[in-house]
Design a protein around this nucleic acid. Structure first.
Lengths: 120, 120
DNA sequence: ATGAAACTGAACCATATGGTTCACTATAAG
DNA sequence: CTTATAGTGAACCATATGGTTCAGTTTCAT
């Protein structure tokens, strides 16, 4: 029962798992924008876009502030650092596994001509 | 209408957006495992685990091979390279935005008074 | 040949997701 | 004061997701 539940990774990756939301991040990378701006850019209703923004905000990827009647969205203070760190950690796992595989392959190549060596 | 639809990013991030699936990746980082192994480790039915593995396989994060009656799962050939690249690209966007913010703040500090504090 | 083990597939269930419309509030602008 | 603009919230809808059970199928061991 390993289980290790990381709620932040859940919400962050879920937020990134949608093309519209990734598009919003890219858009906000160019300049801040209102909900209306975003809704229009991505051809959807205000309400729909507001939900996407809420998801991104929940994940800490976007920050918003309402002044007057317009809510302005910008990239969140939490840069993608946590997510990048997560991915890097797993890339290390991959590397380790594939190094092991490489070792096995090298070994096979060595014993190849001599006898019928068998591994794992 | 920016839209830019990247189907691979969709499936990859969606695959990562689940704690059980991330746990499976970690588990496979230690050693290959059968569906039964994984199901037991995570306290769920064979069928349930098989679905998770299917999702990971679809995303290219896991590869499986069935020999005899047991299907062995290992980390996929697609290391998290695409995902890491994606994230790095966006971290660049973040950096650009925050550099702009820094410039604004620096400007403010200039015009403020001769004695300045600090930011960030 | 019998039976257990490992997987597979279909059907089902509850909840989440991505989107809509409609009614409403709050702020600008005339 | 009146009206248009920007956003909000509730209700709804279709589909996807994460899980289950149950009924196979194949393979391995007796």
């Amino acid at each position: 029962m390993v289980q290790f539940h990381d709620a932040h990774a859940d919400t962050a990756f879920a937020a990134l798992a949608d093309a519209t939301r990734r598009g919003v991040l890219e858009r906000l990378g160019r300049s801040d924008a209102s909900i209306t701006d975003l809704a229009q850019s991505f051809g959807m209703t205000l309400t729909g876009m507001k939900k996407h923004v809420a998801v991104l905000e929940q994940a800490g990827l976007v920050a918003t502030e309402k002044v007057g009647r317009v809510r302005t969205c910008r990239l969140g203070a939490s840069r993608l650092e946590a997510e990048a760190a997560w991915i890097e950690r797993y890339r290390a796992l991959w590397a380790a596994r594939f190094e092991a595989l490489d070792a096995v392959l090298a070994d096979l190549k060595q014993n190849n001509s001599s006898n019928g060596g068998h591994h794992d």
